[in-house]
Amino acid sequence: MITSILLLIIAPLLSIFFVYMAVTEKDLLKAAAYSAGQSIAYSILLQAMSTPDIVMTYIAVSVGLYSALLVFVISKTERFER
């Protein structure tokens, strides 16, 4: 019980940190990695809320497919934001 409450507090804060880093980062590849980190924080949050079905969808789509998509899109443009 106490573990899941702790996770419910830590995971959103972690996701806020990753979102802040992703928004302010000038290197787009690193920003994509921070975005994946935010997705992992959300997965922990969903697991703490005991919704394993949504965790499976969320991990496959947001950490795997979405990050790959972002990397492809970045490869078609410039890596550094000006």
């Binding site: 079905d53 499976m56 969808t57 795997g64 497919l65």
Partner: peptide, 14 residues
Amino acid sequence: TPGGGFQGGATIAV
């Protein structure tokens, strides 16, 4: 068990 068609399909699509 937890999971389903969409989750399995998204995993295979990797």
